[in-house]
Design a protein around this nucleic acid. Structure first.
Lengths: 205, 205
DNA sequence: CGTGTAATTGAATGCAGTCAAACGAAGTGG
DNA sequence: CCACTTCGTTTGACTGCATTCAATTACACG
């Protein structure tokens, strides 16, 4: 689902600039509305028992964040935090729900989005439980390429590790392997994918 | 979401008996409708690369299965299979979608259910990536107790392992530990929980 | 230019997976 | 009714992947 499906409700929008590493909402807080990313990138993550982040999703410009919790009456289970400077607009809960009631197109988009995300998560679970870190990293690069499209992936080693679901040290060792195998190219934080086919092969299925 | 929210559409229902280990639908097939469990229990799982099952959810009497895929235009990504003799009714895709258009209550129930499942999956992911098998088994028992309520859990060792996301042998070793610690009681396939507090403690968070 | 944070490398440990074999239960057919 | 088969369960031994801890190096930012 994309922001532009909400374009006809400009009136309700409140746009705001966020610095890097600022949070939109915190795990445990009560949902007040949805966030639409005009510019920038946002990571959504959960914290495990010892505080380690598990990144669930990375949302980019055009995407909407935080609407799942509108339909639960429960607090956010994830934290949303910008990965870079961003411009994000906010739509209040009541406004959004009213819009959904009035607008069948939006409604269908929401349902479809929820379904897609649900499928993504289920794949994620199976990957997590059955694949090696190496395989998961390959899979993660495939996902990240869809997000970063043509520009190089730009994440800290820690964020990358927290997306793959591994330790930072393990991730770094694997980056080296991939680099030596000619699959990726690394310039400090920026990672470019050189051989997508090989990644798909490693990721399996 | 529960079947009885669909009770007013008895006309559309087609009820049918299923034997144990029969499938309602297969991964890769095209969704034709939703399944409402009157009696019995159903496991939903995905197969990994080497064919190993990852159980995503276990649905019991009263619950609805298979509606997520109605809103994707993509094939099922999971297989649904009965865990015991079951009576299940089927509601065709068109009927169900029409009902949703006409009935705001049903619509809200669907959205809420999707949201809840999404939250469940996200917790699942974080558990998978950050917890030990022992912790996950404890967590799995908490979930299973909510499904089996007062009767003992009744699953094959393999299904249990595939729900926890581990090897059957590892699961068996942990069952022995839990038994020796007085947390559970085991009679062949039937497992009863003796100490829920301890399970919660082990599961963490 | 110094200081803190991120990234990297090394070494050691251990959790959990795999393989192999033995055992048990449930059913099948002679 | 018993031998036989089959499948699920259990136990043992081994291996290795990945984590953790510790130490060092690189880098970004004030």
């Amino acid at each position: 689902m994309y922001c532009d499906e909400l374009d006809h409700v400009q009136a309700h929008k409140v746009s705001r600039n966020f610095k890097k590493n600022q949070s939109l909402f915190l795990e445990g807080a009560s949902p007040r509305g949805v966030y639409c990313i005009n510019e920038g990138m946002v990571k959504l993550f959960q914290r495990g028992d010892e505080g380690k982040e598990q990144i669930i999703r990375i949302a980019k410009a055009g995407e909407i964040v935080g609407f799942k919790s509108l339909f639960n009456e429960i607090p956010y289970q994830v934290t949303a935090e910008t990965l870079e400077e961003s411009n994000i607009c906010f739509i209040g809960k009541e406004d959004f729900l009213d819009m959904m009631d009035a607008n069948p197109i939006l409604r269908k988009a929401v349902i479809k989005e929820l379904s897609h995300e649900l499928s993504d998560r289920e794949d994620f679970i199976t990957n997590m439980s059955q694949k090696s870190v190496r395989e998961r990293l390959a899979f993660t690069f495939i996902i990240l390429q869809k997000i970063y499209v043509k520009e190089p992936i730009n994440l800290s080693r820690e964020d990358l590790a927290n997306f793959v679901g591994t330790a930072t040290e393990t991730l770094i060792r694997l980056l080296k392997d991939f680099k030596e195998e000619g699959i990726i190219e690394v310039h400090t934080r920026k990672i470019s994918i050189l051989n997508k086919e090989k990644l798909l092969f490693i990721a399996g299925k």
